[in-house]
Design a protein around this nucleic acid. Structure first.
Lengths: 166, 166
DNA sequence: TATTGTTATACTCTATAACTATA
DNA sequence: TATAGTTATAGAGTATAACAATA
């Protein structure tokens, strides 16, 4: 199809929409496009709270896992450790989290959320819920369940294949 | 749940996996995670050809839409026009595409793929197909169809809501 | 030796304002 | 005046190497 020299040139006077049929046959393309609008929407909703998507995700996971270490958090969110430092520095400066040295391993920090961070976290999760409701407006409950199931299969499958290649 | 003060502290000796139950209830979180591994996999496959995901997408769309304008391409791929310039500069320097002034509107360029670009494009689409096959390894044909249907609903729904807010 | 967090650094992606040449 | 492409620039996000403190 791509090598087909008979492809018609686009009308100059009325170009019409751009044809993306080749890319649209790939599920990955649709996931990328959906992810783009989702990320954009969530970012706008969190912005008034002073949160970015990365700081929001960290805040929720620390709240849910008191005394989690930086390296565990980085692994869970697939963020490189050096980048995690910057994110946590910001969150600490805003007074949302605390870093406390572990008595049992003085290399590591135990991360906890402050009272201020907990209130912020509750607000942010509520905004994420609103975002989710908009996102799923056109889908049934079964759709959502199926969607998550398929996405998990894709994620686990590709990760396993990547590990196998090592 | 987040405000629950009874949340158990993590065992220091055996921390175990990080719990992300709060985020996992949101479909957007799963789309983000799936997108991450998909992008990583596709990037690795295209790298030997000297292509990035952005240059690959542009190459396919220009091949499919001869004489497409830069601004149309930018809109189709949701890339800002200034960023499109850099991408096309690179593709032009590699000899994959050509920019030709439109006779009917001398502000605009008509973009076309060179013979070299067409051969590269065919190879890249083939790699994308392999990538897609790995991605869908655990899913049925019906799953894939449902997945794409749901992703399109999400994309169109959020875009419409964003437009409504303007 | 290996690991935790850190610094420095670089590259990509994204986003906005302002310029030029054409319409 | 409006639009197509461009320049300059700045902010995120992402990635790797190397270091100090600790295991």
């Amino acid at each position: 199809m791509l090598g087909d020299e008979t492809l018609r040139r686009r009308s100059v006077t009325s170009p019409g929409p751009v044809d993306d049929a080749v890319l649209r046959q790939f599920a990955g393309y649709h996931i990328k496009r959906a992810h783009n609008v989702i990320r954009s929407d969530l970012r706008k909703r969190l912005e008034p709270l002073g949160l970015r998507i990365s700081t929001y995700s960290c805040l929720v996971l620390i709240a849910e896992n008191p005394d989690v270490r930086q390296s565990e958090l980085a692994q869970a969110l697939d963020i490189e450790r050096p980048n995690m430092v910057t994110i946590l520095d910001e969150m600490e400066q805003f007074g949302w989290i605390r870093r406390a040295r572990l008595a049992t391993d003085r290399r590591a920090y135990a991360l906890t959320v402050t009272a201020l961070g907990k209130r912020l976290c509750a607000k942010a999760v509520s905004l994420d819920q609103q975002h989710e409701n908009c996102l799923l407006a056109g889908l049934t409950d079964k759709d959502k369940k199926d969607l998550i199931r398929m996405l998990n299969i894709i994620e686990d499958g590709l990760e396993t294949q990547q590990d196998d290649r090592k």
